[in-house]
Design a protein around this nucleic acid. Structure first.
Lengths: 120, 120
DNA sequence: CACTATTTTTAGAATAATTCTAAAAGGAGG
DNA sequence: CCTCCTTTTAGAATTATTCTAAAAATAGTG
């Protein structure tokens, strides 16, 4: 049994939105006070590797982790810094159709102003 | 006159492909041996801000800088680590058409195996 | 259950690209 | 020449992430 891996996954799955490693760390520590940040990273990598979660690099600051592993895209709010889901249809199909190169995978981050921030 | 900014720009423009800050630093230092890395970053930011070049974050290791500021996409070779240009048609139009959010800008990195690496 | 092998966790150091800070230098305009 | 504003320098600081080696937990096998 891999208690701490399960705890990391559970925290992600029972949280709203997308979290960063240090936030996950904080929340898992409530259950496992002796938890260490390196273990969170270990488990996040393992979980992403096994397809349970997604690892999203924004290029600005810390990475996010997404409880939903199925294909969808993300947008970063330039105002509040939150990462939100974006629906872009079948972007993968578009890319594979138009690219002049084989696409192993891709990372896309949109920059937007989220609805909350727009409502000033 | 901003000699060092011009030198940074010239190095980029007269080099093949896409460079990282430390490589630009090395090359500019041949002309200005007292050059310092922070100045390279200063000038790269200034140049990107003024639209002369593009700043490309790959999310893995160092950022790249692109002498071509007009719209096109990029692919990172998983084998050799080089950043190469990718033609994806009018991706901006696709995104704006399909997105459920306003798109201020976006960052896309494809992962591929470049032609050179493919030829083992 | 005992034994061994593998995985997980820990603690803390290390990494590495980038940014920051404060001071010095440079150049433009009057 | 004087003053202002920009650029540059040197080096420290930042910060998320990774690495390392040792300890602990766990699982598999007989």
């Amino acid at each position: 049994m891999v208690q701490k891996r399960a705890a990391v996954l559970k925290v992600l799955q029972t949280s709203e939105g997308h979290l960063q490693a240090d936030e996950i760390f904080k929340r898992v520590k409530e259950y496992y006070p002796n938890m260490v940040l390196a273990t969170v990273y270990n488990n996040l990598h393992a979980l992403a590797n096994d397809g349970y979660i997604r690892h999203i690099k924004t290029g600005t600051g810390a990475d996010f982790y997404d409880k939903t592993p199925t294909a969808h895209e993300h947008a970063l709010c330039t105002s509040c810094g939150k990462l939100i889901d974006a629906d872009l249809g079948d972007l993968g199909a578009y890319l594979r159709e138009h690219a002049d190169l084989p696409i192993l995978s891709y990372d896309l981050i949109l920059h937007t102003v989220c609805p909350q921030c727009k409502g000033h």
